[in-house]
């Protein structure tokens, strides 16, 4: 019975995955991604990893859906059609995947009690945590105490994500100096963003040769409405 649930969930996951790839409407894709997360959460529950399932449900299906919707509100929600079917990538993925299947075929069978992971460190946690830490949830003991330092690192990762997003998206006043067409300009107090933008457009025309072959800006990238290289502006 359990195996039947496993297979059914995996099939559903696969179908959802393919659907996400094929959808061109990004709103629908985001919704499907939410469903994908819920399905995987269910799969984790079946695998008895309740903590992981909980996290997946809260983060994957909850917050990240909201954030992706927030992004879509900024960049539009229709994916461009690819010019030609991606035969080469498909081929590469199939070949690489095939080799990987072969390569991992000797992995320890799933859930088997003789597996190395159940032989070495894990038994210690299971047997000793009750005495060491005296809380019943071993997952919490491992996460917060035995490997609490990793959790601290992960907290730092989360914080880093915030710093990164704020650096990229937050808006502030104009900088003291801006780079317009390869020239530093001191920004006079009281200059509006629109004036600078007009100047920038002018300077860019003059300095159109500044192409290092990087392919220029991506249309619709977050910086596209700003002065060259400087995101800023009145606080929203």
């Amino acid at each position: 019975m359990i195996e039947f649930v496993d297979v059914a969930l995996l099939v559903l996951l696969a179908i959802t995955g393919v659907t996400i790839i094929r959808l061109r409407n990004l709103f629908a894709a985001v919704m499907m991604a939410g469903i994908y997360s819920l399905l995987s959460a269910a799969l984790f529950v079946v695998m008895d990893a309740v903590d992981v399932a909980f996290t997946e449900a809260a983060v994957g299906a909850g917050i990240s859906t909201v954030l992706m919707l927030g992004t879509l509100a900024l960049v539009g929600h229709q994916e461009k059609k690819p010019r030609r079917p991606a035969i080469v990538p498909l081929f590469v993925v199939l070949v690489t995947g095939g080799i990987l299947v072969y390569g991992t075929s000797q992995m320890p069978p799933f859930g088997h009690a003789d597996n190395p992971i159940h032989q070495h460190v894990a038994p210690y946690y299971l047997e000793e945590s009750e005495h060491d830490i005296e809380i019943p949830n071993v997952v919490t003991s491992v996460l917060s105490s035995y490997r609490g330092y990793d959790t601290m690192g992960e907290t730092a990762v989360v914080f880093t994500a915030m710093v990164g997003v704020l650096l990229l998206l937050a808006r502030g006043p104009l900088p003291r100096r801006v780079l317009l067409g390869g020239e530093w300009r001191t920004v006079r107090p009281g200059t509006t963003r629109e004036e600078l933008r007009a100047e920038a457009a002018h300077a860019l025309d003059a300095d159109g040769s500044d192409g290092d072959g990087s392919g220029g800006t991506t249309p619709g990238s977050p910086g596209s409405e700003d002065i060259v290289g400087e995101q800023g502006g009145k606080h929203g």
């Binding site: 080469v88 990538p89 590469v92 070949v95 690489t96 080799i99 990987l100 390569g103």
Partner: peptide, 13 residues
């Protein structure tokens, strides 16, 4: 990214 996948396959082989 495609290139990475190709290399992954090459190294695996």
């Amino acid at each position: 990214v495609l290139w990475v996948a190709v290399l992954l396959a090459a190294y695996l082989v």
